[in-house]
C-alpha cells in the first residue's frame, strides 16, 4: 500500500498562524457566556440560582391557576365555598356532591332522578 502522504498544507487552517489565532480567539470569545454560566453553577449562589428559577416558574404557574379559580368563583367565592362546598361552586349538582362527600353509592333510580332534575 502506498504510504506517502498527500501534502494538504495549502488548505491547512493552522498554516496561517495569525488567522488561526484569530479563529481560536473568536470561538473562545463567543463561548464566554456559556463558560461563565458554568463557573456560576459552582458557587453557592449559583447552586441556589439553579433551584430558584424552576421553583419560581412552578410558583408562578400555581399562582396563575389559583387566581383563575378564584376569578371563576367570583367575588363571593369564599361564602359559596363555606356554605355549599367546592363541588357546588364548580357547578357539580348538589345531589352528586352529597354522594361524593358521603361515600354512599347511588342507586340507579337516584341517578336517573338526578339526571332528570339537572336537565
Amino acid at each position: 500500500m502506498n504510504d506517502e502522504r498527500i501534502d494538504f498544507s495549502p488548505i491547512d487552517p493552522t498554516k496561517d498562524e495569525a488567522r488561526f489565532e484569530e479563529t481560536i480567539s473568536s470561538i473562545v470569545r463567543d463561548a464566554e457566556v456559556e463558560l461563565e454560566r458554568r463557573q456560576g453553577r459552582l458557587t453557592v449562589v449559583g447552586q441556589v440560582g439553579q433551584w430558584w428559577w424552576p421553583l419560581l416558574a412552578a410558583a408562578t404557574v400555581i399562582i396563575v391557576v389559583s387566581l383563575g379559580v378564584l376569578w371563576q368563583l367570583g367575588g363571593n367565592g369564599s361564602a359559596v365555598l363555606t356554605e355549599n362546598g367546592i363541588e357546588e361552586s364548580l357547578g357539580v349538582p348538589s345531589q352528586v356532591a352529597t354522594w361524593i362527600r358521603s361515600d354512599e353509592l347511588p342507586t340507579t333510580s337516584d341517578l336517573l332522578e338526578t339526571i332528570e332534575v339537572s336537565q
Binding site: 473562545v28 463561548a31 461563565e36 458554568r38
Partner: peptide, 17 residues
C-alpha cells in the same frame, strides 16, 4: 465543564484541525 476558559481553549486548539 466547570467553566475553565484555558481548558476549553486548549480543546479547541487541539481539535480544530
Amino acid at each position: 465543564r466547570s467553566g475553565s476558559t484555558p481548558a476549553f481553549e486548549e480543546l479547541v486548539r487541539r481539535h480544530f484541525r
